[in-house]
Structure formats: C-alpha cells, structure tokens
C-alpha cells in the first residue's frame, strides 16, 4: 500500500514504470539461450530463478552493457555488485589508475565502455591527468553518480555550456579569481567555463530539467541544497559535490555510507570461506585446522590474491599500455 496511485495508472504506464516488460523480454532471451536447462529444470523453475535473481540484483553479473544500464534497478545492482566484488581493493588501501578500475569493471561487464570510466575518473581527478592513482571509495562514489545519472548529467553539461556561453539572457559572465588549480583544467574545452556559472541560475535550469526528465535524477531538494551553499560553481565542482553528498547516496540506495563501505562482516566471512577453498592459495588448511587458523588469517591473507594481480596489470600498463584492448574508444 506504499503507492496506491499505481492502481490508477493505465496498464502500459504501470508496466513501463516498473520495467516489467524489459525483464519479461530478457527472461525469454535468456530462456532461448539456455534451452538445455529447461528440459532439466522446467520452465517455471527457470522463470522463478530468473526473477529471483533480478530481485537479488545478481542478474546483471557478466551481462552486456546495454542490459546493465537498461533500468535504474540494473544500474543500482551493478554498483552494488562492483562494490561488493572489489571492496577488498579499498580495504587493502590500494590506489589504482583509471585503466585499472576499468579492467575491474570489465570483469563484471565485458563490454563496459571506457568513456564512462574516464568520465568518472575526471570527477575524482578534476583534470585530465588520467593516469593518476585514485582510492577505491573516491572512484566508487564518483562512478556511482556518473553511471546512475548518466543521462541527467549529459543534460546538465548541456545546460552548463549554455549558461557559460551566455545563451541565457540573464547570464553575466564575470571573471572571478578562481583558484589556480581550476585554471589548468580544460575539461569541457571552453575557456569561459573556468570561472563557472552562477549557482542560483544554474539551479533554476536544473529544477526545470528534473521536472521533465524521464530518466532518474537526484532529488531536486538535495540539488538545491548543494547549489545554495555556493555563489558560483564549475561543472566538475557540481559533480564532485553530488558524488560526496550523503543524502544523494542514500536516495540512490545502492551503496552504504562512506564510513561503512569497508564494513561487511557477512561478506568478509564468505570471502574467507571462499579463499580457503581455492587450492594453492592457502597451503596449510585442513578440515580440522580451519577454525583454528581463522584468527591468524588477517590482512595479508585476504590481500594475497590481489597483490600479484595488481602488480602484473600495472606492469602491463607501464610497458605497453597502448596495445590494451580497451584503447579503441580513446577520447
């Protein structure tokens, strides 16, 4: 009884609003691709498992990008999966480059576009020094905004450009003494943008945008909160503020608060259990000693599967980064 208005919607709108047909179609595609499973388990069982995995958010694992970004639920599920899979990176305190994060993303979604990862990295790094190292949580929260609100941000960028180039009759571009580090950043390629735009004007346009936007956008009240704290701001300044805002993260609902990002005892336990099962990783595990060696197996053991991976990938990137398969969509 959370939203009784759903009962008054026309059929089509109700289905579209909840993406019922998207998932039904996908279920059929999956069924056609896995015909051998049906003879073994039955169709009803197949659909049960499919819809259950959609509910749990595991349905996006290893799927193509077009599916992963198809619905807000899929996007949130992907963010959650990314966080849960690679949380250990943050826990170990490893700093990775944009390309390395992109590799991690591609482990979950093989055709994940480099462009999106680059955009997310730009929010963190605030400039084009794209080979800088980033912490996991910085990247994750920037990536979340960029990925989840992708279409919204594109419209925001267009509005920002409009305001900068003075298309709005009310705009007066006043060169202000912005800090030096911002000056070096040719992010949107326009010289005028270095000074940013006036926040109140920007908000008016964004409020308008939120009203008619058919994709997800952040709660307007929170956008207002961000913009009412400053006089002027730049596009990336705005994105950084979005990515660091608690309330927006909560409203999106995919990730925990920043403080709890590394805290997931249930997952840690599960991870421990899985690591024990990997042969060769932990050499002295027997059935009887498993419990007794748990306490001793703290950071170094958890970290161990990551270190060689990290180092070898880094070497690759240093020696001949240009031959990487992900290079074709270079900006």
């Amino acid at each position: 009884m959370l939203s009784p208005e759903r009962l008054a919607l026309p059929d089509y709108e109700y289905l579209a609003q909840r993406h019922v047909l998207t998932y039904m179609e996908d279920a059929v595609c999956q069924l056609l691709e896995n015909r051998e499973d049906i003879s073994q388990y039955g169709i009803a069982r197949f659909f049960t498992d499919y819809f259950n995995s959609v509910c749990q958010g595991t349905h996006i694992l290893f799927r193509e990008f077009s599916f992963i970004q198809a619905t807000p639920h899929n996007r949130a599920s992907f963010l959650r999966a990314f966080w849960r899979c690679f949380r250990t990176v943050g826990k170990n305190g490893d700093l990775l480059t944009m390309r390395e994060y992109h590799c991690l993303l591609q482990l979950l979604c093989p055709d994940f576009p480099l462009e999106l990862t680059q955009k997310a990295a730009r929010i963190v790094l605030m400039d084009d020094a794209m080979d800088c190292l980033m912490s996991f949580s910085d990247f994750l929260f920037a990536f979340q905004i960029q990925f989840y609100y992708s279409e919204f941000l594109e419209s925001v960028a267009a509005i920002y450009q409009d305001l900068l180039s003075g298309k709005n009759p009310n705009t007066v571009i006043v060169p202000t003494s912005s800090s030096g580090q911002h000056r070096q950043r040719p992010a949107l390629g326009d010289a005028g943008m270095l000074d940013g735009v006036e926040a109140s004007l920007f908000y008016q346009r964004l409020e308008n945008l939120c009203d008619r936007h058919k994709y997800s956008c952040p709660p307007p009240a929170l956008v207002k909160e961000i913009l009412s704290n400053v006089q002027r701001l730049t596009f990336y300044g705005f994105l950084v503020a979005l990515s660091k805002h608690h309330g927006i993260n909560q409203a999106l609902g995919a990730l925990p608060d920043k403080g709890d990002l590394m805290h997931d005892p249930a997952m840690d336990e599960e991870l421990e259990r899985l690591l024990v099962q990997v042969p060769g990783l932990v050499n002295s595990i027997t059935a009887t000693s498993e419990a007794s060696c748990l306490p001793s197996r703290t950071p170094p053991r958890v970290g161990s599967p990551w270190k060689p991976l990290h180092r070898s990938r880094k070497l690759d990137a240093e020696s001949d980064g240009s031959t990487e398969e992900t290079d074709e969509s270079e900006t």
Binding site: D37, Y41, F46, T58, L61, C85, L107, E270, V278
Partner: peptide, 12 residues
C-alpha cells in the same frame, strides 16, 4: 579466483 558473489543457483 575473484570473489564474485555467486548467483543463487547453478542455472542462474
């Protein structure tokens, strides 16, 4: 060896 959360069933 990536700790990917496993889908609930083998079929999934």
């Amino acid at each position: 060896a990536l700790p990917v959360p496993l889908p609930p069933t083998k079929m999934a």
